[in-house]
Design a protein around this nucleic acid. Structure first.
Length: 732
DNA sequence: ATCACAATACTTTTT
DNA sequence: GTATTGTGAT
């Protein structure tokens, strides 16, 4: 039949495999997405499976959307079409949990806490338990609890084998209490609670087993323990389970993903059919050879012989730049050149990097060259303060028990509710056994004694006014479309005037608010709850628009599942890729290697690798050495000046060690020198340890008798020179 | 209560 | 280089 005609024998075998358990181990570019979409279409068209009975789980929402479109394309839009359930584990869990909310400690209107909400909550926990946040960074607890949840470890089961673990145990318990009080679940809870629900309520489990007779999972190597357990619970004897993955592309271990789920699957389902896809339809052979040279150094894996019929192709190009700016400039020029020579249009080029911070230099170069670009990264938008603020308003309207959101916006823009007032409010709320949000809502002119006592008239009036607004918004949420609610909030709070402070930045902030409003317009029919869920579960990849004819800038992680004609990987320095934080952990180093492998295998025709001698890290220039992964690439596959001890390296060393006494022209001469005795109006007397001339100021490090070492900006500090015993010019 | 500036601490990757 | 917290002045 038509569906199978365009496939190779292995793909065909997978697509038409009998219902049961199927594990497809697919190399990069082997058409695994095609296999999945064809399998779904095959089930519907050939086996007569109702689309409603199919659950397909992808890694990102974008992948889910695309898969839906592709399946629709294969089936044609005729007939009585009902949408297939497609989604990510988190979106799926959120949906099922809302449907079964009576079994949860939170209401069906729960909100989803993202990482920054989790952090805010954890700060409250640490404060509540009277721990010193300096000594016990809330973030460490957050992380420990997150991995515990991913491993399905309950609070009671958390080991207390060390002092730290004991603290985690305590914070974990309190953190969960706080979440419930906020009527909120965090990312990890979504999975954890669903597993619990399915485990403890056989009727519910049975219901979904009957509903979803076919479950398909993409990117199976990046599932974590909770997800795997969820899968096992959802799949009964009768379920057709079809998972696709590539252990070599597992890059989310740090988030709890465990590629050993692939082995676990084979152990748990010994009958499962295993199908291998090795033929590559994406890359040229040189690219595959390079990728294999990198990945084959990993021990204990099943080797894949990747091959293609696309021919040898171009060698990989290696370039060493001087610094980040130079690196970025090279990237821009290369894209220009490729376009000029007709090799690749800019829209077919991807620029990849290990850390988000690296995008800055690149963006600057693109802006300077007046070249448009697409930046993948939801953080950039949804992480912005003003965007988060507006979302917090909406969340509070939807769920007044959300204290994290309440505290976030209670005084933004300033409305006369300061720290004292907040404290009194929280105390009163806990005495009255209400959430702070509910208390504010209940005020309506009548003040309980708990607030009347400690607070002055002005503060009471401010709280009351806010309560009235919040009530009005809740009414608007019930009766009016989402955008009307947003407009009402914006008008009532005067957010625009607050944001637009006359600076360019202020304009941009307001523009971001409008952009969020525009996104909300698309959710007018779906409503507030769906909108909030969307913004909570949105992924980086989701922000990649596919229309523009511009190069794509993205992290290597975000590149998973994508392909480009030309891939430029920047920052191939040791410490960046592999990242320094992975050095002492072999498993983490293996993951860095797989990450590089993922980047390489995104390319269809060309790979360009770039690194630089000096890199700005921590705001300071540091020398960099070439990535150790570069040494694994056979030189036969490479083109361009060789790394390490080439002429360039010698030049760099020279630059690094040369004594340069003459300050750059235009820079002010240093006023302070090591050894000087100086007087500071607050810190008193001290001795200058070091002085560095910055852009148009001087950064002085001074040892004070009173407070020890301080680093100050000379122009701000108001230093008085007592005497000048300095020996000579100080240079770092 | 609010602002402005200064010091501090932290940046791997993200659903 | 950035986000958040802390401090002193108004």
């Amino acid at each position: 039949m038509d569906l199978l005609k365009s496939l190779n024998p292995q793909q065909r075998q997978a697509v038409s495999a009998p219902s049961g358990q199927v594990l497809v181990l697919a190399g990069p570019g082997s058409g695994k997405t095609r296999v999945l979409t064809h399998r779904i279409a095959f089930l519907v068209a050939e086996r007569g499976v109702p689309p409603r009975g199919i659950m397909a789980v992808t890694f990102t929402n974008k992948a889910a959307r695309e898969m839906g479109q592709r399946v629709r394309g294969l089936l044609g839009n005729t007939g009585d079409w009902r949408p297939i359930s497609l989604g990510t584990f988190h979106a799926l869990a959120a949906r099922l949990l809302r449907a079964e909310a009576e079994h949860l400690p939170v209401g069906r209107d729960f909100v989803i806490f993202d990482e920054s909400d989790q952090q805010a909550l954890m700060r409250q926990v640490v404060k509540d338990l009277q721990l010193d946040p300096k000594q016990h960074p809330p973030n460490r607890f957050r992380r420990a609890i997150s991995s515990a949840k991913n491993e399905l470890v309950e609070v009671e089961d958390y080991p207390s084998t060390s002092y730290f673990d004991e603290l985690v145990r305590r914070t974990y318990a309190r953190y969960q209490q706080f979440l419930v009080a906020n009527n909120a679940l965090d990312f990890d809870d979504l999975l954890f609670w669903l597993v619990r629900l399915l485990r403890e309520h056989p009727p519910i489990r049975q219901k979904y087993r009957e509903r979803f007779r076919h479950i398909l999972v993409d990117e199976f190597q990046d599932t974590n323990s909770a997800q795997y357990n969820m899968l096992r619970l959802l799949a009964g004897e009768e379920t057709d389970l079809f998972v696709v993955g590539d252990p070599d592309q597992s890059i989310y271990r740090w988030r709890g993903a465990d590629y050993r789920n692939v082995q676990r699957f084979q152990r748990d389902y010994p009958e499962a059919q295993v199908i291998l896809l090795e033929e590559n339809y994406r890359s040229t052979q040189r690219i595959l050879d390079a990728a294999m040279a990198v990945i084959d150094r990993l021990p204990g894996r099943r080797r894949k012989a990747l091959f293609t019929r696309r021919g040898a192709g171009h060698p990989l190009l290696l370039h060493e730049a001087y610094d980040e700016a130079d690196e970025a400039e090279f990237v821009v020029q290369t894209i220009r050149r490729l376009a000029r020579e007709g090799q690749a249009s800019p829209g077919q080029v991807a620029v990849m990097y290990r850390t988000n911070a690296q995008s800055r230099a690149l963006e600057e170069a693109f802006l300077r060259a007046n070249m448009p670009y697409r930046l993948v990264g939801a953080q950039r938008f949804y992480g912005r303060r003003e965007v988060k603020d507006l979302i917090a308003y909406l969340r509070l309207v939807h769920n007044p028990r959300d204290q994290v959101s309440l505290l976030r916006i209670l005084n933004v823009p300033p409305r006369g509710i300061g720290a004292k007032t907040v404290e009194a409010l929280l105390n009163a709320a806990s005495t009255l056994h209400l959430s702070a949000g509910e208390l504010v809502l209940a005020l309506q002119g009548g003040m309980p004694a708990e607030l009347n006592g400690p607070l002055g008239r002005r503060a009471l009036r401010a709280l009351d006014a806010f309560g009235r607004q919040l009530n009005a918004w809740r009414e608007a949420a019930r009766s009016q479309p989402l955008v009307a609610l947003i407009d009402r909030i914006l008008a009532d709070t005067g957010l625009r005037a607050y944001l637009e402070d006359g600076t360019e930045e202020g304009q941009e902030r307001w523009a971001n608010v409008l952009e969020l409003r525009r996104v909300a317009e698309e959710f007018s029919e779906l409503g507030l709850e769906t909108f909030l869920e969307h913004v909570a579960l949105i992924s980086d990849q989701d922000t990649l628009s596919d229309q523009q004819e511009a190069p794509t800038l993205l992290t290597l992680h975000a590149a998973k599942g994508l392909e480009f004609q030309v891939v430029i990987i920047t920052g191939l320095d040791d410490g960046l890729l592999p990242h320094q934080r992975s050095f002492d952990d072999p498993e983490a180093m293996a993951e860095e290697r797989r990450l590089f492998y993922v980047g390489l295998t995104r390319a269809m025709d060309r790979i360009i690798l770039v690194r630089c001698f000096r890199r700005r890290l921590f705001g300071r220039d540091e020398p960099a050495t070439p990535s150790r992964f570069l040494h694994d690439l056979p030189s036969a596959l490479l083109e361009g000046e060789l790394l390490s001890l080439g002429a360039g390296q010698a030049r760099a060393m020279d630059t690094l060690t040369r004594w340069d006494a003459t300050p750059a022209s235009g820079a002010p001469a240093a006023r302070f020198r090591a050894g000087m005795r100086v007087l500071h109006r607050k810190f008193g007397e001290g001795i200058v340890m070091e002085s560095r001339v910055e852009q148009d100021d001087e950064e002085v490090t001074i040892a004070f008798q009173s407070v020890g070492l301080k680093r100050l900006a000379a122009s701000m500090a108001g230093l008085e020179i007592l005497d000048d015993h300095a020996g000579g010019p100080t240079e770092s």
